[in-house]
Simulated scan of single mutants.
Amino acid sequence: MTAPMDVPSSAPEAQPGAVLTGAGGSIQGRSLRQIAWLRLKRDRVAMAGGVVVAVLVLAALAAGVLDKLFGLIPTTAFNQDLIDPDLQIPKGAFGGISLAHPLGIEPTSGRDLLARIFAGSWISLLIAFLATMLSVVIGTLMGVVAGYFGGWVDTLISRLMDVFLAFPLLVFALALAGVVPDNAFGLSGDVLRIALLIFIIGFFNWPYIGRIIRGQTLSLREREFVDAAKSLGARQPYILFRELLPNLAAPILVYSTLLIPTNILFEAALSFLGVGVRPPTPTWGGMLSDAAHYYQIDPEFMLVPGLAIFVTVLAFNLFGDGLRDALDPRAR
């Protein structure tokens, strides 16, 4: 029988770090934010939508500054010499497109369409963003409270959501915007109309995101970290805002990007029906309403604001879908 071989005590032990280093360097951990960003970068369609959204936001911010503070955007400059006096349509083909007016001019007035689209962008995006923020704040607060406490609190808030969802919002918006005078609540002019639209769109749309947050909260309140916080004596406000709310950041962000284009369309619809921001301040919906009278003789007049709304809504939807897939790949 052979004796077992003795292993020298001086033999070095293999270290896991040495193996990893020899394989090409140490492994670095990645946060959930970094992982989501890597997934989002791989989605070229979503990144293209994000680039368009960024360009639109920068253009709207620039338009607001240039138009309101410095008056450098000629939204009310009339060019009657470019209008056919007999037909009252722009001279030349394709709605009077030229180097001076790349998107053409309006019939009868001769106002530059590019300047009016550029100036109207900040109104549409401002109303959509602020209305979405209002909806998100109310919906998140109501959804978290209903999902966490349950019982009669959940029943009361859920029935309130049902009432708001069944409310004829468009009819109410038409009635409220039509009866509010030009001076009310210490506001007047465009500021009053913008504030009124933000209130109507934001306050009555919160149940959509509220239901989503409620469902997520119902799932999160049974998780181990909530039980651990309770066992350590954490109070309910701490659990709501320090434990649950950070874990709801992803769905809040995703559904906010999907709610913004809906609000853009709703603002355009109200302006189209004549209860939005009033002329001569340009809005995309108001330009579509004016173009409805000339679509047979000058279809390009309707095409420009229609494409502006279409491209903006499409870019937000593509970016929102990509962001949802990046933050929750299981939802694909």
Rank of each mutant, 00 (worst) to 15 (best):
G147R: 01
M5S: 12
S9F: 15
L197R: 06
P207Y: 06
F94Y: 10
V57N: 07
A119L: 05
W37M: 15
T76Q: 14
L288G: 05
F78N: 11
G96M: 02
R30G: 04
R332M: 11
L258Q: 10
D182N: 12
G151D: 03
Y238P: 08
F266R: 01
A166G: 14
G233T: 07
V313D: 12
G24V: 00
T262H: 15
F118T: 11
G274D: 09
S158N: 11
T257N: 09
G25F: 04
F78G: 07
Q296H: 12
L69H: 12
D154F: 05
I83H: 09
G322T: 03
R33H: 13
V304R: 10
V55Q: 15
R111N: 06
S26D: 13
A146K: 14
G202H: 02
F266A: 07
I212P: 00
L270I: 02
R324D: 12
P280C: 04
T217P: 01
G150R: 02
I97A: 09
G276Y: 07
Q236G: 06
L66F: 02
G25C: 03
A326H: 11
D182A: 14
A119T: 00
N183Y: 13
V144S: 02
I117Q: 00
L114W: 10
M47I: 10
T21I: 05
G71D: 04
F199V: 14
A62N: 03
V277I: 11
A119D: 03
R214K: 09
I97G: 02
V277D: 04
N205F: 07
A48G: 12
R214H: 05
G186N: 11
L270K: 01
A36H: 06
S31H: 09
G110S: 08
M287W: 07
A234M: 15
T283W: 10
G120S: 02
